[in-house]
């Protein structure tokens, strides 16, 4: 895998929804070989940014490129970029195996890969069950399987930890780290700082659509004492939803809604 083609470049990315500036001249680079965490409070613009990287939303200014090309210019998108945006992005009446087989057929991916990814995410047993009967954790696993189907060099995952039990969280952490170790670019959003501290090597932190930090996990926690402290300080000016009593607590005790 050559590394240049797996770099995600975001430059001056801006998205406006009527009066709200969801993403404001955002710029950062996500490199292969490491897990990069994408952190920000609820409503900071994480999902919007990811949707623009994947060509699902058109930016009002700036651009997002993967290996120098926009997503829509990729020849075989599913084989180059794996994405998980919503846990339940499948038909509830179709089984995991059928869902993946259909996508494999459309992208000329060998059928044997379906069994492979089902095994990788631990869904082999439930593969023939209708996906509508899955728990949120199982749905997330199917989402991860879908992202991995084309064996892509770039992974963009929006809140993949949601709904996973402790065993599932550890499994995902190990999986993401090993995918990065293989030379892939792994870009994962979350609002769970503790989990990101264990999973990611680098962090891109945004607040109110703006970049507030683009650095290593080690650097950030060293500078502020802990990663949680760093996150709360960096995003305090931009947090959109905050409990009414939050102002009376110190930063360390503040809870993110």
């Amino acid at each position: 895998m050559s590394s240049e083609e797996h770099v995600i470049e975001v430059r001056g990315l801006t998205k406006r929804y009527r009066a709200t500036l969801a993403v404001d001249a955002l710029g950062f680079t996500v490199r292969p070989g490491t897990v990069t965490g994408f952190l920000g409070p609820n409503g900071a613009g994480k999902s919007t940014t990811m949707r623009m990287i994947l060509g699902l939303d058109a930016p009002d200014a700036g651009h997002a490129r993967i290996g120098g090309r926009r997503y829509r210019e990729l020849h075989r998108p599913l084989r180059e970029v794996g994405a998980l945006l919503e846990a339940k992005a499948f038909h509830p009446g179709r089984s995991a195996a059928a869902h993946l087989t259909a996508l494999a057929a459309a992208n000329e991916i060998p059928r044997s890969r379906v069994e492979e990814v089902l095994g990788l995410v631990g869904l082999t047993e439930a593969a023939r069950r209708r996906a509508g009967t899955y728990s949120l954790g199982m749905a997330q696993r199917l989402g991860v399987a879908t992202a991995l189907l084309g064996d892509p060099g770039v992974l963009v995952l929006d809140e993949p930890v949601n709904g996973l039990d402790p065993e599932g969280i550890r499994w995902l952490r190990t999986l993401l780290r090993s995918l990065a170790a293989e030379g892939r670019t792994v870009f994962v959003s979350s609002h769970l700082i503790g989990e990101m501290a264990l999973t990611a090597d680098r962090l891109v932190v945004i607040g109110a659509g703006r970049l507030v930090a683009d650095t290593s996990v080690a650097d950030l926690s060293a500078r502020y004492g802990s990663l949680e402290e760093a996150f709360l300080r960096l995003t305090s000016a931009s947090t959109e939803f905050r409990g009414s009593s939050a102002r009376t607590l110190d930063a360390g005790e503040r809870t993110i809604s």
């Binding site: 038909h91 009446g93 179709r94 089984s95 059928a98 996508l103 057929a105 459309a106 000329e108 209708r130």
Partner: peptide
């Protein structure tokens, strides 16, 4: 080839629903 691949996907999607 793409059309063929897309048709195969649609056929699988159609026949895998009860």
């Amino acid at each position: 080839g793409r059309f063929h691949a897309a048709s195969r996907m649609e056929w699988i999607k159609l026949r895998t629903l009860r």
